[in-house]
Design a protein around this nucleic acid. Structure first.
Lengths: 154, 154
DNA sequence: TATTGTTATACTCTATAACTATA
DNA sequence: TATAGTTATAGAGTATAACAATA
């Protein structure tokens, strides 16, 4: 039994039945991921930093001197595509590629002084964003639960 | 204190310190989403169906006669890009676009008989995949928890 | 022979502008 | 004027192949 006019007397567009799609885990994961990434882009608009660039900076800071291949691989980025990414960060004087003594084929990645200062700021901005997300989730326990559940799917 | 040789006497590649990145909600969401989508692509390789195409078929089946714009919008797809998607499904005789009587600008979307049979099969394949994911998560309660948490981020 | 960084390239996904035919 | 569908196009993101230098 249809009752079109119950809530919209002027016959607005009917709502679609989305019950089945909203039960699909992959679909919901994607929507949530896009939502969080869009928040990231908005928050980091002034710093002109994309999510992947932030993780690269963090990873270099926590693992100075590593090869491009190592950083790229742990992030699931093809080394061919990582070249452009690192070049961009290098042009902004955030990262430097130092030819390795031990292996002359490889570049050791380091943050510049400017890169360290930039990351310190980015981290504080990011921490506030994460705290906002944790608040949305309902606290640290909920965050832990989420990361735990995501781990089982990865 | 570094103890490189504790577990790798032959001095294999050191593991990177990834603790900070693996604590980032957006990063973990993305990895999990990619993982689930890759599973989908593997499971649906024979049916040659992408995740977005599956949700489109489901949505049309549950909302026959709707306009392209309506289906596209609820999925967050630009109507310009939705054209190609629907054409692909139409060429496979899964979907038909019937010019609307009420609004001659619009196409009403329906599944063909073949599309209904195809979707019935796809649904059963998809159900098995979801059951596998639920098992990984630790049961229906864990699934409910996950969808609940994802909702708060979306 | 294998690996590192690189270039070139192609394919998908996404976003915008502009057109047409209708409303 | 606004909307539905469409086309064209540009920009990201991602994947593979091939090359030079080095291991």
């Amino acid at each position: 039994m249809r009752r079109d006019n119950e809530l919209s007397p002027e016959s607005e567009a009917d709502n679609l039945r989305t019950g089945e799609t909203t039960g699909i885990i992959g679909y919901r994961l994607r929507r949530a991921q896009l939502s969080v990434f869009q928040l990231f882009l908005a928050v980091f608009e002034d710093l002109k930093l994309r999510p992947v660039e932030y993780t690269v900076l963090v990873l270099i800071a926590d693992n100075p001197g590593r090869k491009q291949t190592e950083i790229a691989e742990v992030l699931g980025i093809k080394r061919a595509n990582f070249v452009t990414l690192v070049h961009g960060l290098e042009e902004r004087n955030l990262v430097e590629r130092i030819p390795s003594d031990a292996d002359k084929r490889a570049n050791a990645l380091h943050l510049t002084k400017e890169g360290e200062a930039f990351l310190a700021h980015a981290r504080s901005v990011h921490d506030r964003m994460e705290q906002d997300l944790v608040k949305r989730l309902g606290g640290q326990k909920a965050r832990k639960q989420l990361l735990d559940l995501l781990d089982r799917l990865t």
